[in-house]
Design a protein around this nucleic acid. Structure first.
Length: 372
RNA sequence: CGCUACGGCCUAUCAUAGG
């Protein structure tokens, strides 16, 4: 059984859900490990419905499988369902609590996150790390720092988190100081420091750091690539892209976005066509690119062809109509969207405001569910 | 209750309006 479980996990990790499921179905007497492995595979692939069905079919549900489902709900933004399962747990361990802390902090519910943290039994370094991350995400830098300073033990992730909190807040020098005083650094630490140099326009320092790193991963390469793009050094960027040992979709998406940004739509297309795997980000980049260049028909064609849509891609399509002054089309898209965020609403308010329909703009503004 | 092979949690990079 445990060999089969290993197979299920391996297939799950590389996204071959079908194979994972087949192996699972052939296990005569699946144990808890088998169940949570297949459940985790579904949850990780955002197959929420299947995950839920499997969970309901489980003869015995333990903390591990429940936590996997809580995580899946939380990632899908179904905070209520996540909470329901969490609260129905007879016993909550630190992992389950950590997942809830992450879920709350993702939505900015910092007080609820803190509440769970305070109730977490036998906290681990990950529990404290989660709180650093929660405070940092909500912009409470000094609170994050307070957690960092008071935690009983730190690991390299703790250091990376506090580094990122300072760097993200624009406190470059303090971040650099933190980097210099790290007891250990891993590839994430180095890459984050590289990213901080890139962010602040220190391309040469970034490149020097890149060259002397002994371990690089795709993120490292992607950040260096992006740094060249942002500096307008497209030739260097392209050489670096070509030199990458492997190119993931983020690398390709960055390349497409770079061409779009510099108005080189034909090359953007070429890169788009050369990709073997595209994500919703890829499609959105192209749609937005055509939108910006007033090529409404191409934008629309890609949008209709795109296999997956989210609120960002809908917004890009909406904006494409706006750019082309096609306000009826924009309104129609807005009405067809399955969900809206502040960006969608703002775009529509701006349409009416620009057209001089101030009353209509004001009405919409009052109707907005959230504002920023 | 603890131990025992396989399962769950934290950090860095990409897209949409405004700023």
């Amino acid at each position: 059984v445990f060999l089969a479980n290993l197979l299920v996990q391996k297939y799950g990790k590389c996204g071959s859900l079908r194979d994972a499921r087949q192996v699972f179905d052939e296990i005569p007497r699946p144990n808890l490990f088998s169940w949570s492995s297949i459940l985790h595979a579904y949850a990780a692939s955002k197959n929420l419905g299947e995950a839920k069905d499997l969970f309901d079919k489980m003869p015995v549900k333990d903390l591990v499988s429940s936590s996997a489902l809580i995580k899946a709900y939380a990632q899908a933004g179904h905070l209520k369902d996540a909470e329901r399962i969490f609260h129905s747990l007879p016993r909550k361990d630190s992992v389950a609590c950590n997942i809830m802390i992450g879920a709350y902090s993702q939505r900015g519910c910092i007080d609820k996150a803190k509440g769970i943290f305070d109730q977490t039994p036998s906290k681990t370094v990950i529990s404290w790390n989660n709180m650093i991350s929660a405070y940092a995400k909500s912009g409470y830098l000094s609170k994050a720092r307070g957690v960092f300073d008071s935690m009983p033990e730190k690991n390299v992730v703790s250091w990376n988190l506090i580094f990122h909190a300072y760097a993200g807040a624009g406190r470059f020098h303090e971040a650099k100081g933190i980097f210099d005083s790290m007891p250990d650094r891993d590839v994430v630490s180095w890459t984050a420091m590289l990213g901080a140099y890139a962010e602040t326009g220190h391309i040469l320092k970034a490149k020097r750091m890149f060259d002397c790193m002994d371990v690089r991963n795709t993120v490292t390469w992607n950040i260096m690539f992006r740094a060249y793009v942002d500096a307008g050094q497209m030739d260097d960027a392209k050489s670096l892209f070509d030199a990458m040992p492997e190119r993931d979709t983020v690398a390709w998406n960055t390349l497409v976005a770079a061409y779009v940004q510099y108005g080189r739509m034909d090359e953007a297309c070429e890169a788009f066509d050369a990709m073997e795997e595209r994500t919703v980000v890829t499609w959105t980049t192209m749609i937005a690119g055509y939108g910006r260049h007033r090529n409404l028909s191409e934008a629309k064609r890609l949008f209709d062809r795109s296999p997956e849509k989210n609120v960002v891609s809908w917004n890009a399509m909406l904006q494409a109509y706006v750019e082309s002054q096609c306000f009826e089309g924009a309104k129609e898209i807005f009405d067809r969207m399955p969900e809206w965020d502040v960006v969608s609403w703002t775009a529509l308010v701006a349409v009416y405001a620009d057209a001089g329909h101030l009353c209509r703009a004001r009405d919409l503004f009052d109707e907005m569910p959230q504002r920023n």
